[in-house]
Design a protein around this nucleic acid. Structure first.
Lengths: 209, 209
DNA sequence: GTCTATATTTGGATAGAC
DNA sequence: GTCTATCCAAATATAGAC
């Protein structure tokens, strides 16, 4: 081995060490395989055996990368929120409030629908004994700030009630699409109308104050 | 035994036979116990052993009443929809469209929130291999007709898009309340405002035609 | 780090006596 | 209809050799 002079031991070494880098790469591979299984078998259908098989390992070897199955769910949870944030940052944001609201709602609903298992993990949290770690929760909170609170403030909406109403509308469209018309577009087609309804409502409340 | 002269054999006898009646009663007891377990342990936490213990049986005895665990889920599914329908029929329905929409939305959301496991079974269907039978689906369809389509038609709303928008709004409020503020009322407090927003929107669309 | 072997638990379902 | 005794399968996780 070439790294005998390299004194990073196990996973505790410097972030750029060859061993640590390889370790992180394998972790990423495992997570990618986990998403694939979750997508095809359902979130609860993810098992250590299947996961190991898909990355060309035996089940016990996974424990060199994750301490438990819950830790894998936790990493997926944080990764999912980061994905949504990156998707948001990559957008070309329009100035017009109406368009901005529409783009935001469309992003959220389409993100949910394109991977129902991910939506279930991130927003419904119906996995038997799983609770996200505080670190992963922090990622979720940051997403909420950056992709909802901040842009809404930019178009003059700061009332917490209205933010909650917006999230209800978004998850409602997503959940209905996923549960009652998987693969179709029955609720996807209502995104524009919903955004418009919401904005009109928000404006009328503001006027009334 | 007293029913030697009674010629209803097994479960195939007349609906009023003593044996059949007893059988139906036990089935109902089992279902009630199943709901209790689902509420406390989660829908996926329901096991035949626990269920049997709660009704004072051993697990194999349950198979005299239900052919499989899926059949139990299926009976719960139909029962849940019947409950919602009965709840609706028991209401004192107001004539005013605004009030009617509000009452309907409130019923739906509160029904969901008061038993999240039931909501999950009926409206999210995230139980691993469970698909409702065609009979149970028919019950669900009837609920949809009687508690949504008909009353909406009564207040002049027949556009299918608007019905879908209404269900999205209802499930959205319910899901957010259950997932992000269990035991609280953060989204419950938005029911009135949501109903109002929806009605205003529906009226404006009608006017535009 | 990866493997084989295995502990341990759990859960659905069936066989067959009573 | 209910029981005891089991079967069978699946799943997480650990021990210990290499």
């Amino acid at each position: 081995m070439l790294e005998t002079a390299n004194n990073d031991r196990q996973t505790g070494g410097p972030a750029g060490g060859r061993r640590a880098r390889r370790h992180a790469e394998t972790r990423a591979e495992i997570l990618e395989a986990a998403w694939e299984i979750a997508r095809s078998e359902g979130l609860a259908g993810l098992t250590m055996r299947d996961l190991a098989k898909r990355v060309g390992m035996r089940a016990p070897s996974l424990y060199s990368y994750f301490a438990s199955k819950h830790e894998i769910y936790d990493a997926m949870f944080a990764q999912g929120y980061r994905q949504l944030m990156e998707r948001w940052e990559a957008l070309d944001l329009p100035d017009d409030p109406h368009d901005l609201a529409l783009v935001a709602m469309r992003l959220f609903v389409e993100f949910a629908v394109e991977d129902p298992a991910r939506h279930q993990l991130l927003f419904q949290r119906t996995v038997p004994g799983f609770e996200p770690s505080t670190e992963s929760w922090a990622v979720a909170q940051e997403m909420y700030q950056r992709t909802l609170v901040a842009p809404m403030a930019a178009i003059g909406i700061t009332d917490p009630h209205l933010l909650d109403l917006a999230t209800a509308l978004g998850t409602g469209l997503a959940d209905q699409q996923i549960s009652n018309d998987p693969g179709g577009d029955r609720w996807l087609r209502l995104i524009d109308e919903s955004a418009e309804m919401f904005l009109t409502h928000a404006r009328s409340r503001k006027r009334r104050r």
